[in-house]
Nucleic acid binder design. Sequence first.
DNA 1: GTCTATACTTTGATAGAC
DNA 2: GTCTATCAAAGTATAGAC
Lengths: 203, 203
Amino acid sequence: MATAGTRDRILDTTAEFFRHNGYNGTGLKQIVAEANAPFGSIYHFFPGGKEQLGREVISRSGLLYQELLTGIIDSAPDMVSGIGDCFAGAAVVLVETDYADACPIETVALEVASTNEPLREATAAVFDSWIAAATERIAEVVPDQARARQVAISVIALLEGAFVLSRSLRSVEPLEAAGATAVAALREAIGPERAQRGRHGSG
Amino acid sequence: MATAGTRDRILDTTAEFFRHNGYNGTGLKQIVAEANAPFGSIYHFFPGGKEQLGREVISRSGLLYQELLTGIIDSAPDMVSGIGDCFAGAAVVLVETDYADACPIETVALEVASTNEPLREATAAVFDSWIAAATERIAEVVPDQARARQVAISVIALLEGAFVLSRSLRSVEPLEAAGATAVAALREAIGPERAQRGRHGSG
DNA sequence: GTCTATACTTTGATAGAC
DNA sequence: GTCTATCAAAGTATAGAC
């Protein structure tokens, strides 16, 4: 049981460094130092080295973040306010972490997009999953599947783009503006006659 | 005159590497090799080393990209189609460069946001300038200044977020979806009674 | 399985000849 | 101002004791 703890500690620590410093900005020595693990443990648990560790962290972080966001949406009274809550919640976390914790894989995704194909595929799998999950939920209130997917992608793009701007500017204004636009886009897709009963899950 | 060429070659090469490999993924030796410049030239022209070179590349790339986008908008018959042209043009460039050339400073902005304050400020200055320029133009068709700024930030966020998704997924679908949402957001801000005469610059 | 020591490469940076 | 040689540090990865 002690071994499982070491592996998880390495994964958690790496995920945190990836969020703050990116993939190229994170060293393996840095990881084991912070995780209180011996250096050899990295290659014991991840024989593929930094790349394998990166793949697992990307998949894991992507899944965790998806569960976080879908949890927020499912806790909201309706889809529109759920989307708004996601942006508002992200703004709170951003301020609480001094503009460090935003999307767990965005920085890595851009770093590896043109330089490391296996890692690019790992980030693509995460984004695909997010888009599918968001489309599924939005489709509950936007019957047109193509339209639902377009809105889902736009909401995610607004969130990711706002993260870049907010972290760089050290201001939540982009997150607030993007959140308002996301809510408006979803409202428009739902349509005026359906907006009043935008609850999800109940036919 | 030969010296000025070397400095510019270093700046151009660095900008290209930053777009594709990011800040941490770009080595100084890599730069001088590609730019056909002696290694010492970097510290001759940029005594502050990699950080100073990074600052100048960020400012320069930010200004060039702003001029590119405003040029597209000013060439369009109206603001709405101009915004649409920006996303469509970005999609063409992305495909032509095999999903490598998107925003010239986005990757670097995320990498340095929590790790290098001078470089973060350089990226913030660029985003501030983009937001100001976009707000100014959108304000020509959206009288409410606060609303114009909100739309401007959202359009930039949509573009940046779509870049992340499109590069990772190697598909222009996110860019197309975000473009459609950006156009719709601008149309809604202009309002139904003004949409037919959305031309800019003429009172 | 755990942990340490080390090899090898690349990094940013500097010194000094020309 | 151009160019080369070199430094110290950090990077990933491996070998081997325990």
